[in-house]
Design a protein around this nucleic acid. Structure first.
Length: 481
RNA sequence: CGGGGCGUAGCGUAGCCUGGUUCAACGCGCGUGCUUUGGGAGCACGAGAUCGCGGGUUCAAAUCCCGCCGCCCCGACCA
């Protein structure tokens, strides 16, 4: 086991997670070279490691979407202001966040163009041309893009003025079909969060106050970070016919009458990268789940002379061939091994292979897990089998650890006083019965700063923890990002 | 956008209160050379700062005053 001194010896570059979580987060993101600030206020530069994580998430999610019949489109980033003004409720929610282009070609534009905060309006306007009959439905669109929101307070990955995401928009003949779509995509997000990023999530419906402006209802997945705060990691919205009406989107139904299609939208953003940092990282830095780690195995050769180096290179050649399915990086830089160990741990590479003269003499290499620094000698010939197996076990162990953390930070309570007392001294999830009255949410927020995260798909029991009236839902509360 | 804090070399800081020949310094990092290499190496030499920006006070400003910009933390709003 590692003791305090060992731990301290491993860290020099980052603040302690337990002492200053926001400071730790910022240090990790920058020192692990995930991202950095940019010359533009509120906008970040994603560096290869951070973007690599996003690419992994993107690929996995895109595959899932395509399995459900979704097709990728691309729509313009500039949206005429009038488009956004058509939908009252929606624009009220977003207006303060618009970034607008008012000049072009050296003169004032007749109509300002908004840098898309989301593309509902653009897509509805465009699809009006393609949807005429129930035979044209459903239309399942998705686009991978950047969006802009004029944020007041930004944090790398978690909230920036420009961010990358996917936004899916679908149009259906019936409400049932659209609602099934909402659930299906929420499930895709759960798979990405839990199976790929090893972050367990609560899935459920958002309260009226927490839902997306303009949606009939919103659903979300919520994960817990190492500081006990909740993070929304993906949302899926049911619009009913709201948008179709606002944008005059109609089709001729089976009985020859004009109808408005039901629509949905759903999104997951680069915020996911931040969630990986905050859900798995420790005082030594990042810990990346193997399935999405851009580098799964880093090889640190140890040698003194050119002759030793040549021997190791020769021994590694067949090993590298046998690990062709693994994302491997061999670190031959002229740095000392200890330096490399620390650097790759900071960068969260899940598995490290050390190989030097001592290992070579025994025909072995040492495998060290980032998870717990457990070191294990493995015969060179067995690496082909051992490395994938260890990566798999690390993936599982990370999800298990995260699940246990969540379990330890989730309590069921039944009164406001208990909630106030709980949130005074700790964070985490609190589950209670709730009457679904917004006044109760306000009371809790005023007294604890916690808000409702999601309403669970489980029967309501007993009375509302806040007001005592009969409960109509079981809800998860937390202090949230 | 309100409250608090901070801007000095790539990074982290000292100096500021008590203006002035230790005021431009220290550690890390960077470059070169030699020795090293199984948990962040050592020595030597070297490069690198218009002290956030703009005004003002003064014989003299990193230091005092005003304004602006940026960043961080806490709130209100949000993927």
């Amino acid at each position: 086991m590692k003791d305090e001194r060992d731990e301290a010896g491993f860290v020099k570059d980052i603040r302690k997670q337990s002492v200053d979580f926001p400071g730790w987060y910022q240090d990790v993101v920058r020192k692990a070279e995930l991202a950095d600030y940019s010359p533009v206020r509120g906008c970040m530069v994603m560096r290869p490691l951070g973007y690599g994580l996003w690419e992994r998430i993107q690929r996995a999610l895109d595959d899932l979407f395509k399995q459900t019949g979704v097709e990728n489109w691309y729509f313009p980033a500039l949206i005429p202001l009038s488009f956004l003004e058509k939908e009252q409720e929606h624009v009220e929610g977003f207006e303060p966040e618009f970034a607008m282009v008012t000049r072009g070609g050296g003169k004032e534009l007749e109509e300002p163009l908004v840098l898309r905060p989301t593309s509902e309006t653009m897509i509805a306007s465009v699809l009006r041309n393609y949807i005429h009959s129930y035979r044209d439905l459903p239309v399942l669109t998705n686009q991978w893009n950047n969006v802009f929101r004029w944020e007041l307070r930004t944090r790398l990955f978690l909230r920036t003025m420009e961010f990358l995401w996917q936004e899916g928009h679908t149009f259906h003949e019936t409400a049932e079909e659209a609602e099934a779509q909402v659930l299906e995509k929420l499930e895709c997000y759960r798979v990405i969060a839990e199976d790929w990023c090893a972050i367990p999530v609560f899935k459920g419906r958002k309260s009226e106050t927490e839902k997306f402006a303009g949606a009939q209802y919103s659903m979300a997945i919520e994960g817990i970070m190492r500081d006990g705060k909740a993070l929304q990691m993906g949302t899926s919205h049911f619009f009913g016919q709201n948008f179709s009406r606002a944008y005059d989107l109609t089709f001729t139904g089976r009985t020859n009458e004009l109808q408005h299609p039901y629509s949905t939208s759903w999104g997951m953003s680069t915020r996911m990268v931040g969630s990986i940092v905050m859900a798995h990282g420790d005082d030594s830095g990042l810990q990346l789940p193997p399935r999405i780690a851009p580098i799964q195995l880093v090889i640190v050769p140890i040698f003194r002379s050119d002759a030793e180096r040549a021997q190791i290179e020769a021994a590694l050649a067949p090993v590298l061939r046998s690990l062709a399915t693994i994302r491997v990086r061999a670190d031959w830089r002229q740095e000392r091994p200890g330096y490399k160990f620390n650097e790759w741990e900071l960068k969260g590479v899940p598995l490290r292979l050390e190989i030097g003269p001592r290992d070579l003499a025994k025909g072995e290499a040492s495998l060290v897990r980032r998870l717990d620094r457990v070191r294990e000698p493995v015969k060179l010939g067995e690496l082909e089998r051992a490395v994938p197996a260890m990566l798999e076990s690390i993936q599982t162990a990370m999800l298990t650890r995260a699940l246990e953390f969540r379990k330890a930070h989730t309590v069921r309570l039944s009164s406001l006083e208990e909630m106030v007392r709980h949130f005074e001294s700790s964070t985490g999830f609190v589950i209670t019965p709730w009457c679904q009255d917004a006044a109760c949410e306000l009371t809790v927020k005023d007294r604890t700063t916690a808000t409702t995260r999601v309403i669970l798909d489980e029967p309501a029991q007993g009375s509302c923890a806040v007001c005592g009236r009969p409960a109509t839902a079981t809800v998860v509360w937390a202090k949230a990002y």
